[in-house]
């Protein structure tokens, strides 16, 4: 239990091991630990950033989608309106054309009727005249009775 030169030996051991630890053990391990700490911190912040970016992109996508939907609805609306307009226009046009055709046909019919009537009148007058000539022979003078005959023909 005596104090002796073992003290000196142990102090030398102690100094050696502390020196070794200070020189070759502590710096590399603590350096690696710090480096890893930094790496992890960077990774975490990168993850945070990515998450934020994703959020932003999602918001943007939603906004884009909404805009597209609105535009599509607007276009559909316009198209509908335009279609209605075209139909209306076509209807009007068709009606006008029909009326025009009807008027034209009516005009032609009237003309034909008039022509036929005129012709008929002439023929009836000639027929009546010839009939009357035959009946009355010479008694009836075309010139003197012309007025009367014409009146007759007008009654037809």
């Amino acid at each position: 239990m005596s104090i002796n030169a073992t003290l000196i030996g142990q102090v030398i051991w102690f100094a050696l091991f502390v020196f070794f630890c200070m020189k070759f053990v502590w710096p590399p391990i603590v350096g690696a630990l710090n480096e890893r700490k930094q790496k992890i911190a960077e990774g975490l912040s990168a993850a945070d950033r990515a998450e934020r970016d994703l959020e932003l992109a999602q918001e943007k996508a939603t906004a884009n989608l909404k805009e597209a939907k609105d535009k599509a609805a607007e276009i559909l609306d316009q198209a509908n309106k335009r279609a209605n307009q075209i139909v209306e226009e076509a209807k009007d046009q068709a009606r006008a054309e029909g009326e025009r055709l009807i008027a034209q046909a009516q005009g032609e019919i009237d003309q034909t009727i008039n022509q036929a009537r005129e012709q008929l009148r002439k023929e009836v007058a000639a027929l009546a005249l010839s009939g009357a000539e035959k009946v009355l022979a010479s008694e009836v003078n075309r010139d003197t009775h012309g007025k009367m005959l014409e009146q007759l023909a007008g009654e037809l």
Binding site: N4, Q10, W13, I29
Partner: peptide, 30 residues
């Protein structure tokens, strides 16, 4: 006088400590 057993065991254990940690320190990476 030197206590040979004390010095040998303490030195041996110190060397064991140094070797153990040095092995790790040599291939320490992040």
């Amino acid at each position: 006088a030197f206590h040979v057993d004390s010095l040998a065991w303490s030195g041996g254990l110190g060397i064991l400590f140094c070797l153990m940690f040095f092995m790790v320190a040599r291939r320490a990476s992040s």
